[in-house]
Design a protein around this nucleic acid. Structure first.
Ligand SMILES: [Mn+2]
Ligand SMILES: [Mn+2]
Ligand SMILES: [Zn+2]
Ligand SMILES: [Zn+2]
Lengths: 147, 147
DNA sequence: TTTATTATTAGTAATCATTATTATTTAAAT
DNA sequence: ATTTAAATAATAATGATTACTAATAATAAA
């Protein structure tokens, strides 16, 4: 029999795994990795698997309910999809929000016209955060081979 | 016997592996991954190993002779360290240069004052490049689970 | 030039994040 | 209640990157 489902294709089911992951991401102000999300969510859902976390995070990303931030080969997730930039500390690797960026900066507007269909953009600032700079006696050496 | 080497610590040796990798990165206008660099450089140095390529790329990055661009979990490298942004195609995953960004945009200047020591920044634009848009019959579907 | 020192390399094994697979469970439509 | 396929848990596999180690080679010292 032909389904009368309005939205053709697959139907999306509401599961507690999905809700708890999204709730967690919206509750924190940090930018956790899939691995950390897995560890945290497992406190509420002890039987959840890593694969489920990765798959749900991918779904949420594809539905624009979360944003993915790739830092040093590791994907971090942001439950805040509002327009903002990020500051990445090169020492502790924490990711901080920068909200006071002009919402639609001139360069963004210009690029949207020039290159064509720009769906979105990301701005990353790199440096050493206040906490880390407080701990540093001097400027850190450059040639460490640490990733 | 005590060495009279001026710069304390390890001395950097010039090797052809190092030179050929850097030359290759400076010769191309693309943004190759370590794996592609390995395949290309092996044409000139058939005995070079993957580990060497990764290590040298890390060295060059730490010496600010190349830039690293993390896209979808894969690190790409840029032999052009001048200030420019990138456009990443969500279909073919190619990385294009955007040079006509204002060198020291206002938002950057503001942030440098607010957050503190900002060493550098990166701006990524996402969308579908001209080539890929030409091939598309319609706008691509959203909910593909492809990474 | 010859020898000594040690950074660098080649080859390979190991690690880590992420994805694929598959049998089972379960939300929701009928 | 029965049916159907989306979603899950558990686990295996993959792929990028790093670690290890013995051999090599660039530079310094003799
Ligand atoms: Mn954020
Ligand atoms: Mn570039
Ligand atoms: Zn820090
Ligand atoms: Zn493209």
């Amino acid at each position: 029999m032909i389904t009368n489902n309005k939205n053709r294709g697959s139907i999306e089911r509401i599961t507690c795994q999905k809700e708890i992951i999204l709730d967690y991401l919206k509750s924190v102000k940090t930018h956790p990795s899939a691995e950390l999300i897995f560890r945290e969510v497992r406190k509420k859902l002890p039987r959840i698997s890593q694969g489920t976390v990765y798959r749900i995070l991918n779904n949420l990303k594809n539905k624009d309910k979360v944003k993915a931030i790739s830092v040093g080969g590791i994907t971090h997730f942001d439950g805040d999809v509002s327009s903002h930039a990020h500051f990445i500390c090169q020492e502790c690797h924490n990711i901080y929000d920068i909200f006071d960026i002009c919402q639609e900066c001139q360069i963004i507007k210009e690029q949207k016209l020039k290159v064509g269909k720009i769906k979105n953009y990301q701005i990353y600032f790199y440096g050493y955060c206040k906490k880390c700079r407080a701990k540093m006696p001097r400027l850190p050496k450059k040639d460490s081979n640490r990733k």
